[in-house]
Design a protein around this nucleic acid. Structure first.
Length: 603
DNA sequence: ATCCTCCCCTAC
DNA sequence: TAAGGTAGGGGAGGAT
């Protein structure tokens, strides 16, 4: 069983970094009430001059600020073994760098002092810094991370910076730095430039503990020497590709042919780099960017012995996401499941035995019936998506759940909540669909069912039906339109078939895309893929059968399954274009129809 | 034309 | 035992 998500998060440095945004949103809420900070929609014009504030070796500085005995001593933050997260400049003089192994660092610097992570302090100091930045810039502050932000430099310049206009920005920056140091005893560096990119690049030159300003007239010369790798947005991959084109500095970018850069990076990224190299930055200035997703994932120490364990873990993640959404007072209408699948025959990593090792990362998105932040709704959608991926539980090395298509919960509050189909079918802690699948699998191995199981089925059916009768539900609020409800069952089935065929076609398409020679390697056989495609398409039949049962009870379901069988045998719906898989397609459908009947209608 | 899904890349 | 999380931008190719 994987470690609990919450307990993992307590110790995860990346979780701290990643979840900073949620805390910052909270901070912004308080600022909105205190100051006349308004939403930046429509977007405000970018500042004429930008300051980029970045704390110096933030984690190490926080960890040592209350320990005067560590002043001037080489210090690094780590768990005591493994990687170094951050180290001070004394340690860097010995060649210690972030990301280095503790043992390697000790070789370079035998007197290195290791200090533990102190996330509470990191957060507290970060917020203290932001208090100062918001006050100094009168709200013209764009937060990037717990230790990094952009300011409108003109908003920071005050009367006491006056006199010599020439270096007013430098004076203002020095004032901010002094305030931050006074309050937090942590050093920061400030870069000043004509836009966010230039300011950010200037900060590199300001470090440590300094200010560096790139004046308007100096911008082109300054950029000419700058490596493309340092331009924000140009990462490891892009830099490597550009190097093969002989593009290493921004001066090289200016000389390069536009088509070559577009070919290497794509239209948008190329445009941004070409602009940046010429001192132009069109990044919008957003003090309060709109959040688009809420998610939680874990790919460390995840080992599942069976499907039930994997589903439990997904439920945990869904609970986590649900809680975060409730705190943010938002709802979502899409759920995406992310799954790390071990590459077949890949050896476990010797360096990180608990890590995910070589994996394919798969995602699948499912709509939810209506905008919600309910943990159960989210986990239902996520588990449905996971079943669709059909990955053997023992191959799972990581899972993630994230919600998108976000909306304000207050708006959604006006919508009358209705039970969803999965809730209607639910009898206890488990989803009925799970049981359908389970029974389906059991039947393949052992047709005989025990008497007690049959009785349980009887009870389930009776209970579900009586609930349906008592609730007198408004079916029009479900995901099917009234028109579809009124139409005859054959049309419903045709719709089911079309949906299944679409899914099948998509699976075929995916198979094509994953062929060797493309960027990704193929890790499952073509046969297996086709098999999964057929099975996945049959899920659609189950979904429609469930609806038929809810609407028409046992007789409704029987009518549906009978027509389904007739339609499958008629060949009418099996055009050749579905990859010659028509026969197995039909077989899978018929098998599923039998299975649903066997479970829902007790014999 | 525009949106959607899944994937890759990037930043911190 | 370590602690490979969170979120956004963008592209390819398909659906509408």
């Amino acid at each position: 069983m994987p470690r609990a998500v919450a307990s993992f998060h307590e110790h995860s440095r990346l979780h701290f970094i990643g979840s900073w945004r949620a805390r910052y949103e909270e901070f912004l809420e308080t600022k909105i009430h205190q100051q006349n900070l308004v939403d930046d929609s429509p977007p405000r014009a970018p500042p004429r001059v930008v300051m980029h504030v970045d704390m110096d070796c933030f984690f190490a500085a926080c960890a040592t600020r209350d320990r005067p005995e560590l002043a001037g001593v080489p210090v690094a933050v780590s768990w005591g073994r493994g990687e170094i997260s951050s180290c001070n400049y004394e340690a860097r003089r010995f060649g210690v760098v972030a990301g280095q192994n503790v043992d390697a660092a000790r070789v370079k610097c035998p007197h290195l002092t290791l200090v533990p992570y102190d996330f509470e302090t990191f957060e507290r100091v970060g917020l203290e810094v932001y208090e100062i930045l918001f006050e100094a810039s009168r709200g013209a502050c764009v937060g990037v991370s717990v230790d990094e932000a952009y300011l409108d430099a003109d908003a920071v310049v005050g009367d006491d910076d006056g006199g010599d206009v020439e270096d007013a920005y430098e004076r203002a920056a020095a004032r901010v730095r002094a305030k931050i140091y006074e309050k937090t005893r942590c050093a920061c560096s400030i870069g000043i430039g004509a836009n966010m990119v230039v300011a950010r690049l200037a900060t590199r030159r300001a470090k440590p503990d300094g200010v560096f300003r790139v004046r308007e007239a100096e911008t082109m010369d300054f950029l000419a020497k700058t490596a493309v790798r340092h331009v924000p947005g140009v990462g490891r991959r892009a830099a490597a590709t550009l190097t093969t084109l002989g593009i290493v500095t921004c001066a090289d970018v200016r000389r390069a042919r536009r088509e070559d850069v577009v070919e290497a990076l794509g239209t948008k990224s190329a445009a941004r780099l070409l602009d940046a190299a010429r001192g132009v930055d069109a990044t919008p200035w957003r003090v309060r960017p709109q959040r688009k997703t809420v998610g939680a994932q874990m790919s460390w120490g995840v080992r599942c012995t069976d499907d039930e364990v994997a589903m439990d873990f997904v439920r945990q993640l869904a609970r986590e996401v649900s809680q975060r959404m409730q705190k943010l007072k938002i709802v979502a209408s899409k759920t995406t499941l992310k799954l790390w699948r071990a590459v077949a025959d890949a050896p476990p990593s010797a360096k990180h035995p608990q890590g995910h090792g070589a994996c394919d990362v798969l995602t699948r998105t499912r709509p939810m019936k209506m905008a919600t932040n309910d943990a159960r709704e989210i986990s239902d959608a996520a588990i449905a998506a996971m079943r669709e991926l059909r990955v053997e539980a023992t191959m799972i090395r990581g899972l993630g759940v994230s919600c998108s298509k976000l909306d304000d919960a207050l708006l959604a509050g006006n919508v009358r909540r209705q039970p969803t189909l999965s809730q209607m079918f639910r009898t206890d802690g488990r989803d009925k669909n799970d049981e359908v699948e389970k029974k389906d699998e059991e039947e393949e191995e052992d047709i005989a069912e025990t008497e007690s199981e049959r009785e349980e089925d009887d009870e389930d059916v009776a209970r579900t039906q009586s609930q349906l009768l008592q609730n007198d539900c408004d079916f029009a609020l479900f995901d099917d339109s009234q028109a579809e409800m009124d139409s005859d069952r054959t049309n419903v089935l045709r719709a089911a078939y079309t949906a299944a065929a679409r899914r099948y076609a998509w699976q075929r398409h995916e198979l094509e895309r994953l062929r060797p020679g493309k960027r990704r390697r193929e890790t499952i056989s073509e046969d297996e893929h086709a098999e999964r495609a057929v099975a996945a398409s049959a899920d659609v039949v189950v979904a429609h059968a469930r609806r038929a049962f809810i609407r028409g009870g046992e007789s409704g379901l029987r009518a549906f399954t009978n027509e389904a069988r007739a339609l499958c045998r008629s060949q009418e719906l099996l055009p050749e274009r579905y990859g010659g898989q028509g026969a197995s397609f039909t077989a899978a459908w018929l098998h599923r129809v039998d299975a649903v009947e066997a479970v829902v209608i007790s014999k």
